[in-house]
Amino acid sequence: MMATKGAVKPIRIVMGKVGLDGHDRGVKVVARALRDAGYEVIYTGLRQTPEMIVDAALQEDAQVIGLSLHSGAHMTLFPAVVEELKRRKATDIVVFGGGIIPEDDIEALKKQGVEELFTPGTPLQDIVAWLKKRFPEGGST
């Protein structure tokens, strides 16, 4: 009865930086690229705890969490976000990350539930292409 065909179903992505790390150039560039690709990006800013990020994702009903980290604490903080999602029974929310992450760590993080990781130098289109593939039903209007 109510209108549906004109409805837009953009994918919502909560992005933020976990831990003590003030390097936000990268996450802002990625946020901008995702906006330009038609995603709704909710940027939560610096120095977030895993609990804060997950809480924001739940309130915002986001399908994706994008984490950025350049401090070297990714092996602790990225899995902590995944654990918090488990605790809040929200494992349907997809987690991806970016930052200075050694190759050996990437496999380990993937095993722990971070779906994809992007390192410095990754073309922005690659990130967009990954999201498009992961969420073929949504995105731009």
Binding site: R35, E40, A56, T141
Partner: peptide, 22 residues
């Protein structure tokens, strides 16, 4: 606002309110 061209958006008002996040 959303982009009139792609529909995408950066929603950043939360940043200022994150201390109430939990």
């Amino acid at each position: 606002p959303n982009s009139p061209f792609t529909g995408g958006a950066i929603l950043g008002d939360r940043i200022r309110m994150q201390r109430h996040a939990l």
